[in-house]
């Protein structure tokens, strides 16, 4: 009986999530009257705007991930090793992006870094891109920090660090060769989450007026019928691929089995 109820609940949930998706997928295939076709997808993929904005967002995502790793891994490591008392504070700080709306942050950026400010980053495209990357990194911070911190919890950071030091290693070597490889599954899951966030982000890119994928989806959605549905399916596929990769990475890291 209990089992039966559980199945009912599961089916209800699955329907709740799956039906709209199915409807959208069905609609995206109906561009040609009367038959299912991939016309909408073809149209989207062939759109030079799609290619340009998607490429832009992918590159931004990669830079954001690199920046996030460089920022978060040493920070989380240092906090765990030397400042364990500060952990609650740092955790709180990394959670702030969840409660401060992106739009507030962007207006803050624009105020601080506009063309007549002391550091006119919005004056050039490159400067604005860098600013956007900082914004993305901040949005991803809660996920990245949590992932890395959990990864660090699984290893004996203090003793491994001391072992490496006694063998002659400096901080750089310790971070790159001892800490990073051991939290790599965690870092990668953080990275895929970051990727998914950056690809779908709209507010910051739109307000900073960068040709990113999020604003493109919005424009397309406002002007076309079938293509936005196709685009949404593609975006979902990307997100799910990221999630699947997180699972794969966690499962197949060859030395991590001992700790699980």
């Amino acid at each position: 009986m209990n089992r039966f109820m559980a199945w009912i609940a599961f089916l209800f949930g699955a329907t709740y999530f799956a039906l709209p998706l199915l409807g959208m997928a069905e609609f995206s295939l109906s561009m040609r009257r009367g038959v299912y076709s991939l016309d909408a997808y073809r149209a989207v993929l062939a759109d030079p705007q799609f290619q340009a904005t998607f490429a832009f967002s992918v590159v931004m995502a990669l830079f954001t991930i690199a920046f996030g790793i460089l920022l978060v891994v040493p920070t989380a490591f240092w906090v765990r090793l030397k400042l364990p008392g500060l952990r609650p504070l740092v955790e709180f700080l990394t959670l702030l992006p969840l409660v401060i709306p992106a739009i507030v942050v962007v207006f803050g950026y624009l105020r601080l870094y506009n063309t007549s400010s002391w550091l006119p980053m919005t004056g050039t495209a490159m400067g604005t891109n860098i600013l956007l990357m900082f914004g993305y990194a901040m949005l991803a911070l809660p996920y990245m920090y949590r992932a890395v911190d959990t990864g660090l919890r699984a290893i004996d950071v203090a003793t491994l660090t001391e072992a490496a030091q006694s063998l002659g290693a400096g901080w750089g070597t310790i971070l790159a060769q001892v800490i990073l490889p051991n939290v790599l599954p965690a870092v990668l899951s953080g990275a895929f989450l970051t990727f998914a966030i950056v690809i779908g982000e709209f507010t910051m890119a739109a307000l900073l007026d960068r040709p990113a994928f999020g604003p493109y989806m919005q424009i397309l959605g406002a002007n076309k019928a079938y293509e936005p549905a196709a685009l949404a399916v593609i975006a979902f596929a990307i997100t799910w691929a990221c999630m699947a990769l997180i699972q794969l990475v966690t499962r197949f890291s060859k030395h991590a089995r001992a700790q699980r």
């Binding site: 290893i155 004996d156 003793t159 491994l160 001391e162 072992a163 490496a164 006694s166 002659g168 001892v178 490889p181 051991n182 790599l184 030395h255 991590a256 001992a258 700790q259």
Partner: peptide, 15 residues
């Protein structure tokens, strides 16, 4: 310091 250290918890690099 060129010192070798062995710990109670082994502390081998797991990776």
């Amino acid at each position: 310091r060129a010192i070798g250290m062995v710990f109670q918890a082994y502390a081998l690099f797991p990776n």
